[in-house]
Write a protein that binds this DNA or RNA. Structure first.
Lengths: 340, 340
DNA sequence: TTAAAAGTTCAAAACGTTTTAGATTATTGA
DNA sequence: TCAATAATCTAAAACGTTTTGAACTTTTAA
């Protein structure tokens, strides 16, 4: 492996100048820079990351901890995130180190990785409401960025979507279509996103003088969504459903169908779509109207924010909320006249 | 962060002695060692990995590349392996860096990670027969260890089970029970393990004067296994099935049942069980007789072998074949008399 | 023509370890 | 007692960068 010394020896320059030339410092003569670059290319020079890291004090590694369930399965979105993040981090010469959290104490895995004392920071995702990991890391001054948001006034870098606005958008669309009995089939209330979806839903309904009494918070399984929807259809006669995910929408649409009703003639369905690989909103019958914000889109910003944060950008300048895009397809329509 | 210098200053010792004391070198006086250790403990000293790595020339990071399918799902065993490997590697102060392979060229992801020039080696798993990754890495002199085996005379470190013996064990058991028409529902022939299972099966049958003509190689899906078994039962009247996995066994047993037959009265079933988290052999009805070799057991040996290999142990001393254990349960029994 | 300013380069220190070669002290054998 | 040996410790180099502070060279301004 060629080193800076090799290049400097070959050109009769000092190591310092070679280093600066390759790192684009302005004070090096353009001719020298070119000569240096040429030799570096010829020798196939690649900087030794370890040496760089020793002197800069950073390790070039960030950690991420995968929460896995007892059956050793993880979130279906995991690989989506993994793929995007490793690619985006690689652009900053940074590696992603993974560890697995199977324990009850959600901070234990972080402690273990930190003890090894080699990570520059963490990337967190899927926060619970008032996530204990956040306080743990904040308390120790460990840099991290969060995909999502676990509290109202975060003091840490965060990238996510405005989940209250997501619900509000859906409600607005449906109300404009004449719906008044609107149900929300939400995720589990432990998740921060579900809490926001619910409060956004309630606020949006209230603002229009509607009652938000048809809300079910439960694990985002098709089977659960199916039961909830069937139950609501039987007892409360909603004309529209707002669904927290496409998987939930699948359950809801099945229930509508099994109830002998039709989408969108009798019942409208709107879902939020973070573009999971398996359940594609476009392939529903009819195709789903969604608020769309692909998870994949979060990876690059998250990586950039992590790097910026490590370089000193304060947290308050690293808080981004992406807007979900409303995509109208066939699953929404005017409220059935007779039910108004 | 306390450094060696801090400790040496406090004790009036040289940095060299402190380093040796903490690293257990024999030439340091036991009393000095204790004094050093005491101060190190008090100051909460932890060696700077980056500095260690600069001087030793190793990065302390090994790579693993996850092959994921187009739908962004991966092998169900992935997290099993991930969990075990990160834990085992951590004991050697080594981190696992993950990358994702979604491309057609299986070596592309390795090239990309190697270009970043920061990994000490790779851990490979799930080899195909004559896996192209092996030649790629061997050709470049990159250290790696393989979980499994892709060729007959491997020149690289490998840990796995003797897949030919696995088939042989199953055949032996069934023949001793009086079976003569034995089918093999195997995995896809692209995988190295499936090729070995098949040849082991054929050899074992032949050695007993039986014909091995009831073989199906296909993706290890329950649905495929179901069709193959149903087909074989209708046309060839096997009295026993050897299954490449518990998932396959599930399909086979369903087919036996749907055919109006009973396990083990009419048909015996033996499966290989690598202890996948979802399909537990013990929970079958009747419980499955299996050759058992948990994937999880491979993680620690693999990690140890990786480290040993990096420290210079030659490949030929790092080739271990674990034996699968035969576990007799309710799915096997004597061959039905009338069919012999 | 000369002093100041700007442009360019260099030597050396620093990061925190491990390791080599050598020095000092203690112990042993005769 | 003295040399040889063993035990213990040290100083310094090395790993490959980045960065500091200074030095040298060229250009500019008067």
């Amino acid at each position: 492996m060629a080193t800076l010394k090799d290049i400097s020896a070959e050109l009769g320059l000092s190591v310092a100048t070679v280093s600066r030339a390759l790192n684009g410092f302005p004070e090096v003569n353009v001719r020298t820079r070119n000569r240096v670059q040429a030799v570096a290319d010829r020798l196939g020079y690649r900087p030794n990351r370890i040496a760089q890291r020793l002197v800069t004090g950073r390790s070039g590694m960030v950690g991420m901890i995968v929460k896995i369930k007892a059956d050793m399965s993880a979130d279906e979105t995991f690989f989506e995130i993994l793929t995007g993040l490793t690619a985006a981090l690689a652009d900053h010469d940074t590696d992603l180190v993974l560890a697995v959290d199977q324990e009850n104490d959600p901070t234990a895995a972080y402690a273990k990785l930190l003890e090894r004392d080699i990570l520059d920071g963490f990337i967190l995702n899927a926060p619970e409401r008032n996530d204990p990991r956040v306080n743990y890391l904040l308390g120790r001054g460990i840099p991290f960025v969060m995909h999502g948001q676990d509290r109202d006034q975060p003091t840490y870098p965060t990238y996510g979507i405005d989940n209250k606005a997501v619900s509000a958008q859906a409600v607005k669309l449906l109300v404009n279509l004449g719906h008044r009995r609107i149900a929300l089939i939400n995720g589990e209330m432990g998740s921060a996103f579900a809490a926001d979806r619910m409060s956004g839903f309630q606020d949006a309904m209230k603002a229009r003088g509607l009652v938000a009494d048809l809300i079910r918070n439960d694990a985002a399984l098709q089977s659960h969504a199916y039961s909830h929807a069937l139950d609501l259809l039987a007892t409360a006669g909603p004309t529209a459903f707002v669904c927290a995910s496409t998987v939930i929408a699948a359950g809801v649409m099945q229930a509508v169908k099994d109830r002998g009703l039709s989408v969108p003639r009798d019942v409208s369905v709107v879902a939020h779509d973070d573009a999971p690989p398996l359940t594609r909103a476009r392939n529903f019958e009819p195709a789903l109207t969604v608020t769309r914000a692909p998870l994949r889109d979060a990876c690059e910003p998250l990586a950039n924010m992590m790097i910026a944060h490590l370089k000193g950008t304060p947290a308050k300048d690293l808080q981004v909320w992406q807007n979900a895009e409303m995509i109208l397809r066939g699953s929404t329509g005017p409220a059935p006249a007779e039910r108004n």
